[in-house]
Nucleic acid binder design. Structure first.
Lengths: 209, 209
DNA sequence: TAGATTGTTAATCGATTAACAATC
DNA sequence: TAGATTGTTAATCGATTAACAATC
């Protein structure tokens, strides 16, 4: 099973490897090397080889890695070798942008359910999906056996929605609210807060006059 | 100056400390401790004290940290003690959502310029800002002395836009295109790709039937 | 005062890199 | 074959934690 024992920091790099491999494949390449991947990503070739070696021996000396088979291996490892249905909670501007975003489908995710608490939005259709009341989250997500959710509500509602998602059986939450969610330890959370990234960068900049 | 010598991983935590401090302040607290901050963020108290100690002595034994003065110190350290103007390139769904997002202003950033390459969008107004042609990026950004940009174009245009931004003097790019941008080493890039985060989480999930 | 909490040191832990035999 | 590149080991490097004297 090997869901354990692999450092999380390594898991965090695998999707980047996958993204680069797909890019190389689109360029028509058949083989690549740890050196080439490293150049693309700004990572040392040794690290890439070491990361991959935790899962198996996927390369050939002298030749490198067959792109399509390494792609398949990484998809299998990451559990992205099939499509995950995703619930999106909050269809404000950001939620709508996510609902319209075409980049999920060919990368193993598909938004299948939309929820909001605004009566003016409930019942609307966005790209063919009806916006459902947040009151239906628990029942709907349980029935559909959804494990992955994106949370794009205002900050004040985020924790309560997260609690509901957890009760519904969701185990992975992509959190766009700029707050720390408290969840049981079997539930995974990743945060996306653009301001955090901006603040981190301007540390290195000269403050303007 | 101390722009160097501090590990980047520490810099990455400072915005989180800042966000938690502001939350505590909104709750009416005056003092906090490394223990309390750590509990909020899932970080050890020792790490927080160590991180802060790289910049000075901000606490008092027995009492902890004065929230408003530590907030001020962190803002000063991060260069978020004034507002940074930000250029946004690409006003598709995501770009529009970012333009409408109210969370930048009270956190030291303000979108001041919008650019797109679609003639149908150029000249439109979004929240009072006119969408300008990408042809004007270099001149406009130089004149306005903008150092921070958010890149929300399609993937195929991202590198060319990044090159233009760099020529215009931009030194920090928040990149929403799912690709690695090649930039000079004085230019900082942070990537936001929701799929990367999702893929990283589902590794830990049981693949559904 | 007694209790609480800092800032800092030293120890521990974990991640990255360099190097190279194996081999395609 | 000769050249290239893997997988892996050991060394290095860096980050985290535990512990505690200092002191508010």
């Amino acid at each position: 099973m090997a869901r354990t024992g692999i450092p999380d920091i390594v898991i965090g790099r695998l999707p980047l490897y996958l993204r680069s491999l797909i890019r190389l494949q689109q360029g028509g390449a058949i083989f690549t090397s740890s050196y080439e991947l490293g150049q693309m990503l700004g990572i040392s070739s040794a690290q890439i080889r070491k990361d991959l070696s935790l899962f198996g021996e996927f390369g050939k000396q002298g030749t490198g890695y067959n792109i399509s088979s390494l792609t398949a291996e990484l998809r299998r490892i990451l559990h992205t070798d099939h499509e995950w249905p995703v619930a999106l909670i909050g269809v404000g501007d950001l939620g709508r942008a996510l609902a319209h975003y075409g980049g999920f489908v060919n990368r193993s995710f598909r938004i299948t359910h939309l929820f909001d608490n605004d009566p003016a939005k409930i019942g609307q259709h966005i790209d063919g999906l009806e916006v459902l009341s947040v009151d239906l989250i628990e029942k709907t997500i349980k029935t559909a056996n959804i494990k992955v959710a994106m949370l794009a509500t205002p900050i004040d509602e985020a924790q309560a929605v997260a609690d509901t998602l957890v009760r519904a059986g969701v185990e992975a939450i992509l959190n766009y609210a700029p707050t720390v969610l408290l969840v049981p330890e079997n539930v995974h959370v990743q945060d996306i807060d653009p301001v955090i990234h901006l603040q981190r960068m301007v540390y290195y900049l000269e403050p303007p006059a």
